[in-house]
């Protein structure tokens, strides 16, 4: 189902922060093919348009969770949806997080801001099959304590480590203040046998990858999720190019050995 949207009904909305909402969607009739962590859907707000939204939760009954931040016209419309509303869905599109690549490895899941959303189903997949991997480390950077996503779930993610740091603490915040990479000192991993999954703003991705390379991770063991303008998601419209990559097809998840030379070119 890649050309024509299928109707999905909003069955639940959960405000995460002042500008971010998680919606639970269920197919009205037919369901899209199964999603995998890191892949995305084109979500259509009636009459407004489509936006690419990574899947934030894959439910056993065919339902999907999407965490949407009100940034443009479409995402604002999606954030304003009430239960019962119907949206159009196409997908799944793009590459996902390559969890089999990390078999037996320690895992570093590094998220900045809304970048935690596409990593959530990855964390859940790891928690559901903990024997497949080494230690799970989740490192989260947020703007303020109020901007933290999935607050009720984070305690269960410390297998063994889940760290949170914010850029600006409010009154009463007793946690870390600083960039997300400072949490790497507390994470438990052996660099030679670690795979990292990184999603956030591009500057954060590059800073994190640099730090991880410095600590001895191989570039192809650093998987990053990139963002470009997307319209068709089927590789036909040309918008999501990043040099040789069509990110709707060759991404959004890309190994850093491919991403690094591209991200270092200005305005590519």
């Amino acid at each position: 189902m890649t050309a024509i949207p299928l109707p999905y009904r909003v069955v639940e909305t959960r405000p995460e922060t002042a500008d971010t909402v998680t919606v639970r969607l269920e197919p009205v009739h037919e369901a899209l093919p199964p999603f995998a962590p890191g892949r995305f859907a084109m979500v259509y707000a009636f009459g407004v348009g489509e936006a690419p939204v990574s899947v934030a939760g894959i439910l056993p009954d065919g339902g999907l969770l999407h965490t949407v931040r009100a940034a443009g016209a479409v995402s604002r419309a999606l954030c304003a949806l009430a239960p019962g509303a119907v949206v159009g869905m196409r997908g799944p599109f793009g590459t996902g997080w390559d969890l089999p690549l990390a078999a037996g490895d320690d895992l570093l899941v590094v998220a900045g801001g809304i970048g935690l959303a596409p990593l959530r189903p990855l964390v859940q997949a790891v928690l559901a099959a903990p024997q497949g991997h080494g230690r799970l480390n989740v490192l989260i950077g947020a703007r303020t304590p109020d901007d933290l996503l999935y607050r009720g779930e984070l305690d269960g993610w410390a297998r063994p480590y889940c760290g949170i740091t914010v850029d600006r603490p409010g009154a009463g915040w007793r946690g870390r203040v600083g960039v997300v990479t400072t949490l790497l000192d507390e994470a438990l991993f052996s660099p030679a046998g670690t795979t990292a999954f990184v999603c956030g703003p591009e500057i954060m991705i590059r800073a994190t990858a640099r730090d991880l390379l410095h600590r001895g991770l191989a570039p192809d063991r650093i998987l990053v999720s990139l963002e470009r303008n997307m319209h068709c998601a089927t590789g036909h419209c040309g918008h999501c190019q990043l040099g040789p990559l069509l990110l709707c097809r060759d991404g959004p998840v890309v190994g850093y050995e491919r991403a690094e030379p591209l991200l270092s070119v200005r305005e590519l």
Binding site: A71, R228, P244, L245, L246, L268
Partner: peptide
């Protein structure tokens, strides 16, 4: 254009370069 971040290729230089490198170069990759 990226929501909330503006255009990735803001300069004319980067847009001509995108067109020509795509046409003659990265088209092969894609």
């Amino acid at each position: 254009h990226l929501s909330g971040a503006g255009p990735v290729r803001a300069s004319g230089r980067s847009r001509y370069r995108q067109w020509m490198t795509h046409k003659l170069g990265t088209w092969h990759d894609q």
